[in-house]
Design a protein around this nucleic acid. Sequence first.
DNA 1: GAATCTATGTCAGAATGCTGACATGAGTCA
DNA 2: TGACTCATGTCAGCATTCTGACATAGATTC
Lengths: 152, 152
Amino acid sequence: MSQNGGGVDLETSLGYLLKEASSALRTAMEEVLRPLGMSVTHYSCLELLAQRPGLSNSELARGAFVTRQTMNVLLQALERDGYVTRPAEAPVGKVLPTRLTPRGRRSLEKATVAVRSVEVRMLAGMTETEQSDAFRILRSMIHSLRDGNDGT
Amino acid sequence: MSQNGGGVDLETSLGYLLKEASSALRTAMEEVLRPLGMSVTHYSCLELLAQRPGLSNSELARGAFVTRQTMNVLLQALERDGYVTRPAEAPVGKVLPTRLTPRGRRSLEKATVAVRSVEVRMLAGMTETEQSDAFRILRSMIHSLRDGNDGT
DNA sequence: GAATCTATGTCAGAATGCTGACATGAGTCA
DNA sequence: TGACTCATGTCAGCATTCTGACATAGATTC
């Protein structure tokens, strides 16, 4: 069935490979988070709040790479289910600082273990040098994509 | 920086950085494809068909990193709009080999130029060595994620 | 030849994320 | 002070993708 013919140009594209790697990572994370009833964005939100308590909806959205509308829907669900808390009124401006509840922290702990195992697996077989290379290279890609937006 | 013993430090996590890079790439591609009325998956499908004519729905889905159900919906729309053709009946088994129409090929040409410019921008400032390093490292990540299935 | 397994195409419903839009609060500037 | 710009929170509608399910064709096994 698979007539895997000659090599294909897509196989030499770094963009395609980046997408493939991201897809593999996402799939692996979904696999370990599904038994916990948690999506990747769900986990990302909790992890962000654990490391930077008091983040606003918009800041969380940027950190999880979704729109603030999407994060707002998620936060409302998390608040309703008692994983996070937000003040009824904004202390300053319209920004509502969000914090994890003990329940949210407990839920995150299990997820963190699962996600860390995925990251460890991903890095298996990579040397320290390769890991720092990867870091530098990915940062370069991100910077070039975002910065070189407007020729000038 | 704040440590969360055993946790995943987002500032130093390669997984998080990979997601960030992928997000930046996707956003950049969407920006240049939107004026052409084309989504990333839409483009991926056409590009795959250009390089490997006759791919089936399931094969296209794997190549574009979506489910075969998702690709099926897209293919029906592309067929309806005259970008691709599929035989009414399967030559063998249930597999329906898909091919680009001249219209699909023309549409792809514009998109390819746009997407290539994004990839060029992403690689700006990277040496040949860094690019080959990136290739090897990303391939390693993909292999480790898919191979080491269970590591509890 | 029959049972079984795997892969495929497809339909239907649900989940997730996005764009558009609006009102509001804070900062900037004349 | 008032006009302007920008960021934020939020509601609504739409787009995209997913999971679940089913029937069918080919391969495998006995």
